[in-house]
């Protein structure tokens, strides 16, 4: 519309620091030694810290998993998902019902949780993604509330009270009931999630997602089936959420409809957008910030959502690529 002027790229001080850090870490020896030190530190941490710290760290690892799941949908495929907490509820309730009501071993409920997520993902994604990508936003927004109404009014989910007495999982003869057990469980899960995300990012499928995100028409012209490729992103992301939900259910041993409110979907989305959509370290950073921020500023409680909204707004207008953006994402945007 307006005349397009060639834009000079100038880095602000923050970006300069990030670029410097990036160059520093680009060195493989340094990179791996930092990673190994961090891992060792995180493995050692439960022995040296209070229960409160362990709880927050466990929560953080949990957020890393769900944020990486949402990142597949929002970051890789460029689809807006506003009801992620609902998929997480699907997993949590499948595990909860099977474990609390029928006494089935936790590990056996996981495949059912995935199947339930695939069914829910197909029911929501298939009709919607066939059309415009942005219909998905409002349909998932509705789905989030519909799931909440349903679990509140159906007998099998325990209504508004929820489910209690979900059995603790047993892992090679050890009953996982200490917070440190869950710390390690979610730590391992988040490492798996990071690994899977990287493999997906570099895979043929991951490239196809990013291609569609950048230019749908060009992707279609190159022979990528836009609908099924998008749907696969939506479903894989949903499975991440459902699995995280299952683990959430056994950690809490009690779940209720209030554990899966709209605000949770928004917090996860904020973490992804804040960190940098599509960039895995960025999303991990976003997850860390979103978990730690409410802990260090408890008194703002009721203003939290307003602050989140303002952060989202300012980010979108002034820094849509997030704190730690994907280089590919940055370079292709005009």
């Amino acid at each position: 519309m307006e005349q397009i002027k060639p834009k000079k790229i100038t880095l602000n001080p923050f970006e300069k620091v990030v670029e410097k850090l990036y160059e520093l870490f680009d060195n493989n020896v340094l990179r791996y030694s930092v990673l190994i030190t961090m891992t060792a530190f995180l493995v050692y941490l439960p022995r040296a810290s209070s229960l409160f710290t362990q709880e927050i760290m466990t929560n953080m690892f949990f957020y890393v998993v769900v944020c990486l799941g949402l990142n597949i949908i929002v970051g890789f495929a460029g689809l807006l998902h506003l009801g992620y907490a609902a998929f997480f509820a699907v997993g949590a309730y499948v595990t909860g019902i099977m474990s609390a009501t029928y006494g089935i071993n936790f590990w056996l409920t996981l495949p059912f949780s995935i199947v339930a997520a695939i069914i829910a993902g197909l029911a929501i994604g298939a009709p919607t993604l066939r059309l415009r990508g942005d219909y998905l936003a409002i349909v998932t927004l509705g789905f989030g509330e519909i799931i909440r109404i349903t679990v509140r009014n159906v007998g099998i989910t325990g209504g508004a009270v929820g489910l209690i007495g979900i059995e603790r999982p047993v892992f090679f003869g050890i009953v996982l009931n200490q917070i440190s057990h869950f710390y390690y469980m979610f730590f391992i899960l988040s490492i798996i999630a990071i690994f899977v995300s990287y493999r997906l990012y570099d895979s043929r499928l991951g490239r196809a997602w990013q291609y569609i995100r950048e230019d749908e028409d060009a992707a279609a012209a190159m022979g990528i089936n836009v609908v099924t490729t998008r749907l696969s992103a939506f479903i894989i992301g949903s499975c991440f959420g459902a699995l995280a939900g299952s683990f959430f259910a056994v950690k809490m041993t009690a779940i209720s409809p209030d554990s899966f409110m709209f605000i949770h979907s928004i917090m996860i989305l904020l973490a992804v957008v804040l960190g940098g959509m599509g960039k895995i370290p960025g999303v991990v950073l976003g997850a860390i910030i979103v978990t730690i921020f409410p802990e260090i500023s408890r008194d703002i409680g009721q203003y939290r959502l307003i602050i989140f909204a303002v952060i989202l707004l300012v980010l979108m207008i002034y820094r849509p690529q997030g704190l730690w953006p994907d280089r590919q994402f940055q370079s292709t945007k005009k």
Partner: peptide, 20 residues
């Protein structure tokens, strides 16, 4: 300000305004 930005950005902006 978002009219020429990617589709996802303006959707997130709309969500933020709604939340506000």
């Amino acid at each position: 300000p978002m009219l020429k930005a990617p589709r996802l950005s303006i959707l997130i902006t709309a969500l933020a305004v709604s939340m506000l």
